[in-house]
Nucleic acid binder design. Structure first.
Length: 791
DNA sequence: GAGTTTGAAACT
DNA sequence: CAGTTTCAAACTC
């Protein structure tokens, strides 16, 4: 078991060698024969790994998408964060991040990935630190395990698995670093140089790899697979990267990085339990290697990218990577996650930028002036904006971050409006990207509040990113407060509960059950909460994490977004926000009997989605779509019936939405993000707002944002809303999708029409067009979108 | 603000 | 898996 990896690798290597890329590389570097084998191994494993495995867990799948999306978007956010670090590293770090996230997802959905930790781990940051890297890696690993979240049992992998995993991981780690390079090099120049450099450096990749393997352990074989799969993806894209260096690079690298991070974090956690002692050394080695590689890759990448790319890279790298990874690496997972998230966000931004070609300007702000980016982002298409915003939203233990992270203006996080700390849970599909949703709102809020941030020089891009969610929320809250006490109260009363700012009133559950909205949303309870005997606080992090794991063990989707948006396309890149039609449906469906699905008792209605086949409701009159699936009817009828009932509710919600949506700014845990995304549902104000925000990064977010244009949202148009809701896309995990209503398949077609390009603001104002497109929308509504990102 | 209703979550 | 209980939000007054 210990060395299965290599064996496995060997086989893949052969394949890898066969690959044109491999050949190309070999041709480039004379040295390759020996190393090439190693590289090949890494690639092979990556390339050959079956993606499906990655999605072993629902969360994972969801996360993947979301994350990927995030990644792309992250570019921007990452910049600020990493600004402290060298821009060069960015690519690698990002890759690491992705990897980590992936791992985390697959392995431990709930566990936190500390973005930072992951970063630190993954971050093979050239500048800081090679030395640091070594340390960081071990830490990251530790975090994964060490954190309460990482309860050994809950985590997918057993020790045995770990061993096997470790094997896989080792290659992975190498792969990750190499991959990042590889991509860049491929585009730019070749692996050869890098390898040569490595050799020159005197690093033994093999030894390093083996060590790394030891260090890096996937929670489960699945994780490794997933990770590999991710890598493959990254690689594949990488081949094409040359064409679109900026976007792809950011994406690929980010993905890879994330993957790595996930792996590292999760694995590390477990691994630590297994062999804590060994990790550090290996990590150091790996770090050195990675750093070198990364540096090389970065250099090469930059070269490939050309001036533009380099500029972006620098910016991103500088802003995103640097930060916390090192300093914070040890910090709370939450911190790390944030970092990751932010990075992701940054990536997205990058992508977006690339897509819009605005990146240069955005990126130009390389220094963590994240704010400017946000601002810019804000102006950008709603979808984009939202996505960007979303990224920051990923909340991780804000408190932890605040406390731990010196560098960052953690304080803000802590002080965030709600003061709520997101529970850093790695998996939460939400992340799914899902998860992102919550973030999006935040981002949006950020965008809105950008002025506030800007005003705060203290906030660095990194903080801004991480805090984005929080900060955004914070800023929003402040704005709200400033704007009018009333608003604030409203938020507290109405919107305060928004996912971001949820408040609970638990008395018996100790806020450790899904009864607790805070807990369910992946956030810590905060002052506004009137809960009793609350254990959902940072102080009880371990308990919270353990509980989460338990719940997830029972129901892997427990923390997944309840509402799945079928997002056809993932305009993550921001290329085409217009694409994504979407239909959203409640994951499990409701079971309403007396509310006729016309009240918030109904989760479907609450989520702003129509009832689906999955629903067992009786007398369904869901304004967003009846179980019967007569959405069309809904449209027609909606005007009549819905107006009466729904309008009332909707209007209320809408009215609140403005406020709530602000609330959404609150930091969101990965899980939360997922949820939020899912929740986009029209009815819930917050949800909508969030969705809108999220839109950019995730298709869902885009749809919602576009469709709802929440920000503008102001006016409730019952009809409209209804239709909108149908529209929402979802980024459901494959698993969730499995539940998708049959209709969805047919409907699913992500016809461009369905998606509506309508600008976010259009909201209601644009209603005419929407109306015209109503039917189309309905079609698009397909209950559940395919998991596959539609890029 | 208290009480009721409701349906999800948890339990058996 | 179904039935019951528990729970807290949503809602009403």
């Amino acid at each position: 078991m210990d060395t299965p990896e290599r064996n496995q690798i060997a086989a893949p290597i052969s394949k890898f060698e066969d690959s044109p890329v491999f050949n190309f590389i070999n041709s480039l570097s004379p040295i390759k024969p020996v190393k090439s084998a190693n590289i090949a191994q890494t690639f092979n494993s990556l390339s050959f790994v079956s993606l499906p495995s990655i999605f072993t867990s629902p969360h994972v799948s969801s996360h993947k998408e979301s994350r990927f999306l995030r990644r792309h978007n992250f570019s921007d956010p990452s910049k600020p964060e990493f600004s402290s670090v060298n821009g060069n590293k960015v690519s690698t770090n990002e890759e690491v991040m992705d990897a980590n996230q992936l791992c985390g997802n697959s392995g431990k959905p709930l566990e936190d990935f500390d973005p930072r930790s992951s970063i630190g781990k993954a971050s093979f940051e050239p500048n800081n630190g090679h030395s640091e890297l070594a340390i960081e890696l071990p830490q990251t690993l530790k975090y994964g395990c060490g954190s309460p979240d990482c309860d050994p049992t809950p985590c997918g992998g057993t020790e045995v698995e770990l061993a096997s995993k470790s094997g896989s991981l080792a290659p992975f780690s190498e792969e990750a670093s190499e991959i990042g390079r590889f991509n860049s090099q491929l585009h730019l120049k070749g692996m050869c140089q890098i390898e040569q450099k490595k050799e020159e450096a005197g690093c033994d990749w093999e030894s390093l790899i083996s060590d790394a393997a030891d260090l890096l352990i996937f929670d489960s074989p699945d994780d490794t697979r997933a990770f590999k799969g991710l890598i493959q993806k990254s690689l594949d894209p990488g081949t094409s990267i040359c064409a679109s260096l900026g976007s792809q690079f950011s994406k690929d690298d980010v993905n890879d990085l994330q993957k790595k991070q996930f792996v590292g974090s999760d694995d590390s956690g477990e691994h630590e339990t297994d062999d804590p002692s060994t990790q550090p050394e290996e990590a150091s080695k790996l770090n050195g290697m990675d750093q070198k590689q990364e540096n090389l890759a970065n250099s090469s990448f930059k070269d490939c990218m050309g001036s533009n790319a380099s500029g972006e890279m620098d910016n991103e790298g500088g802003t995103c990577i640097p930060v916390p990874s090192k300093t914070l690496s040890n910090l709370h997972r939450g911190m790390r996650r944030r970092c990751l998230v932010f990075e992701m966000a940054g990536v997205r931004r990058k992508n977006m930028d690339d897509g819009s070609n605005c990146s240069s300007s955005m990126l130009s702000q390389s220094d963590g002036t994240f704010v400017p980016n946000d601002k810019q982002l804000v102006p950008l298409k709603p979808g984009n904006d939202s996505s960007r915003r979303i990224l920051p939203g990923i909340g991780l233990h804000l408190n932890a971050l605040a406390t731990t992270s010196k560098d960052y203006n953690v304080v803000k996080h802590e002080t965030l409006t709600s003061g709520r700390q997101l529970i850093s849970v790695p998996s939460s599909s939400g992340s799914y990207l899902s998860t992102i949703e919550g973030q999006e709102p935040v981002n949006k809020s950020l965008a809105l509040n950008s002025s506030d941030r800007e005003t705060d020089p203290a906030e660095n891009g990194f903080q801004a990113l991480e805090d984005a969610s929080q900060a955004s929320a914070y800023a929003i809250s402040e704005e709200l407060n400033q704007s009018s006490p009333k608003k604030k109260r409203r938020r507290l009363e109405h919107g305060g509960e928004t996912e971001g700012c949820k408040r609970c009133n638990c008395k018996k559950s100790k806020c450790l059950k899904l009864y607790c909205e805070c807990f369910a949303a992946g956030v810590y309870c905060v002052e506004p909460c009137s809960c009793q005997e609350c254990f959902n606080k940072p102080i009880h992090e371990d308990t919270v994490l353990a509980t989460r794991k338990q719940i997830e063990s029972r129901n892997p989707l427990a923390f997944a977004p309840k509402v799945i948006r079928s997002s056809d396309s993932m305009p993550e890149v921001g290329d085409e926000p217009s694409k994504t039609p979407a239909s959203a449906r409640h994951k499990r469906g409701c079971n309403c009997k007396k509310s006729s699905c016309l009240k918030k008792y109904c989760e479907c209605y609450q989520g702003g989605v129509g009832c689906s086949i999955n629903c067992r409701c009786e007398g369904c009159k869901n304004a967003f779509g009846r179980k019967d699936g007569m959405e069309a009817e809904l449209e027609e009828e909606t005007e009549t019936l819905e107006k009466s009932v729904v309008d009332k509710n909707l209007q209320k919600s809408i009215v609140q939405n403005d406020e709530e949506y602000l609330d959404s700014a609150l930091p969101v845990t990965p899980l939360r993000t997922c949820r939020q995304s899912s929740q986009l549902s029209f009815p819930s104000k917050t949800k909508l707002a969030r969705s809108s925000f999220l839109t950019i990064g995730s298709s869902s977010g885009l749809h919602t944002s576009q469709i709802f244009g929440k920000p503008n949202f102001p006016q409730p148009q019952s009809k409209f809303e209804k239709k909108f809701q149908t529209i929402p896309e979802d980024e459901m995990p494959e698993i969730l999708r499995g539940n998708c209503s049959p209709t969805s398949s047919s409907i699913k077609t992500a016809s461009p029409n369905s998606k509506r390009v309508s600008p976010p603001h259009c909201d209601f104002g644009s209603s005419p067009s929407r109306r015209s497109g109503r039917k189309l929308i309905l079609q698009s509504i397909p209950s559940f979108p395919s998991l596959t990102p539609q890029h």
